[in-house]
């Protein structure tokens, strides 16, 4: 066992060494903050929610049994906190336009995107991400960027696994649609 994995630090915190928790905060801070920001769309609220998430995680670390990954457990706390906040604000979470792109279209776009420079690609991805509803942004980030499994995402969001798969599929298509348009505009501008 790697002595420096999450469980090593979790055990230390459980044994009363509070400072060990800072390792976990440091490791997951950006992800929890990013998730909060995607959901709440406001940096101050996102920071507060992200801090609350870690404080809650610390308070209930005694109940964490290790049956799921620590990150899954942590993201679930953050996600639930965001949902509670959004319900208070009465924001509509779930809206999605289905895009009509075939799998082959997606592969073609992906190939073309690999040819553009990294900075432009990063910018396009950010813009494409912004076109998605908050919950879809979270799903895409968890699955494609954070490498979380569908089962874990289902646990975090409280959705069924099949629902997670469908939503990821649709959100990815929507992002590809945006990227395709963006790419065509860029080519048009060059010409």
């Amino acid at each position: 066992m790697n002595p420096k994995d999450d469980h090593y630090y979790i055990d230390q915190v459980k044994n009363g060494k509070l400072s060990a928790f800072s390792y976990l905060v440091e490791k997951y801070r950006d992800m929890v903050y990013g998730l909060s920001l995607k959901m709440l769309k406001n940096t101050e609220d996102a920071e507060e929610l992200a801090q609350d998430t870690f404080v809650k995680a610390f308070q209930s670390i005694g109940t964490y049994r290790g049956s799921s990954k620590f990150s899954t457990w942590l993201y679930r706390i953050a996600y639930n906190g965001a949902i509670t906040q959004l319900r208070k604000r009465k924001v509509e979470l779930y809206s999605l336009d289905e895009q009509r792109l075939s799998d082959q279209d997606e592969l073609d776009i992906a190939n073309r995107l690999t040819e553009i420079d990294q900075e432009a690609l990063a910018g396009s991805l950010k813009k494409a991400m912004a076109t998605l509803p908050a919950d879809d942004q979270v799903l895409i980030t968890l699955f494609y960027y954070e490498d979380q499994r569908v089962e874990d995402i289902a646990q975090i969001t409280g959705l069924s696994e099949s629902n997670v798969k469908v939503k990821i599929h649709r959100a990815r298509k929507k992002m590809y649609s945006f990227l395709k348009e963006n790419l065509e505009e860029a080519v048009f501008n060059v010409l």
């Binding site: 990013g34 997606e106 690999t114 990063a122 991805l125 960027y145 990815r172």
Partner: peptide, 17 residues
């Protein structure tokens, strides 16, 4: 298709705390 998108997402720069 997922693998390709995962490759693309490596260029994604998430928000920093």
């Amino acid at each position: 298709i997922d693998q390709n998108f995962k490759e693309l997402m490596k260029s994604y720069q998430p928000e920093k705390s």
